[in-house]
């Protein structure tokens, strides 16, 4: 039971990160119907941005307040990654609207290959470790055999995720940008006719997706304390799995899917075999796509003839 509780906490932490990445997939899919294959690599890139900002703040500027450092790193990573998201959409996706069916996906694969190798070239192929920022833990429960803990890191990750989701939810549901975005999702041409700047709305969607990926990237760095240029691929595919599982196009679905994938992965590693944990995630992806492509919260697609 104690073991289960501990794994549950770990799973939720991991799931929060997946959920944040999954939101980027699901928003982009909702608005332009493409799988943004490069999103996982944007996440990886943001982790590097966070790493460098962190090093500058701590080693060069000598900041010591953990909360301040975390906040500044988070904001810088979000802004700088958002710029990348904007640029990628502008250069690699926007010119392809109205091109043939597979063009955006192939272009996205190109961007993905470019980003991971770009980071490898400019930062080197080795793992980049950072000293742990926070070590403290809350002890939730203790007996002779087992202690259930919630580390500060995990608490930070969960609260940051929850807070950002709340803000994000407000943005999509209550602001004019959110309305424009939902309108573009339903019918882009009609939205344009009603005076919505569709290009800007799509750009903003990418910017938001990248900013959320940057939050995930920063938290990932905080949690694992190490990042490498190849870290975008597997979390990217898992987050995509989360988006599909939750119902692609559905925002709550993406978070729900992320949490489920995080939990499944953690429990799978804890109770079955750690070697096959990625296989489990990939299998879920295949099974969901075959049997319920609309996911848990998504709407089924009616084929247009």
């Amino acid at each position: 039971m104690e073991f289960f509780a501990q794994q549950f906490i770990n799973g939720l932490t991991l799931g929060s990160i997946y959920g944040l990445i999954a939101l980027g997939y699901t928003m982009v899919f909702g608005i332009i119907g493409m799988v943004n294959f490069a999103h996982g690599d944007v996440f990886m890139l943001s982790s590097f941005i966070a790493l460098i900002c962190f090093l500058i703040l701590t080693t060069w500027l000598g900041l010591t307040s953990v909360a301040l450092v975390f906040l500044i790193v988070l904001i810088l990573a979000m802004v700088l990654t958002a710029l990348w998201g904007w640029a990628i959409e502008r250069v690699a996706y926007r010119p392809l609207r109205g091109s043939f069916r597979l063009a955006p996906l192939i272009s996205a694969i190109g961007v993905s290959i470019f980003l991971s190798n770009f980071v490898q070239v400019v930062q080197g192929a080795r793992n980049k470790p950072v000293p742990p920022l926070v070590r403290e833990v809350f002890v939730l429960f203790q007996n002779e055999q087992y202690t259930v803990t919630l580390s500060y890191k995990q608490a930070i990750i969960m609260t940051t995720t929850a807070a950002l989701l709340a803000g994000f939810w407000y943005l999509v549901q209550r602001t004019s940008f959110g309305r424009a975005q939902r309108a573009c999702e339903q019918d882009r041409r009609m939205a344009a006719l009603l005076g919505i700047n569709v290009d800007r709305t799509i750009s903003l969607t990418f910017v938001l997706g990248a900013a959320l990926a940057a939050v995930a990237g920063t938290l990932y760095l905080l949690y694992y304390g190490v990042v490498s240029f190849s870290d975008g691929f597997v979390p990217g595919v898992k987050a995509f799995t989360a988006a599909v599982l939750g119902g692609i196009g559905s925002l709550p679905g993406a978070v729900l899917g992320g949490l489920i994938i995080g939990l499944i992965e953690t429990f799978w590693s804890a109770y079955f075999s750690i070697e096959y944990k990625d296989v489990a995630a990939f299998l879920i992806l295949i099974v969901v796509l075959i049997f319920k492509p609309s996911g848990i919260l998504g709407r089924p697609e009616v084929e247009k003839v």
């Binding site: 690699a92 091109s99 063009a103 272009s107 190109g110 961007v111 290959i113 070239v121």
Partner: peptide, 19 residues
């Protein structure tokens, strides 16, 4: 080292200019 970097760029470029 730059091979894959260029692969990626070339794929994007192809889709944009000569799909």
């Amino acid at each position: 080292e730059y091979r894959l970097l260029l692969f990626g760029l070339a794929m994007v470029g192809m889709m944009v200019w000569r799909p």
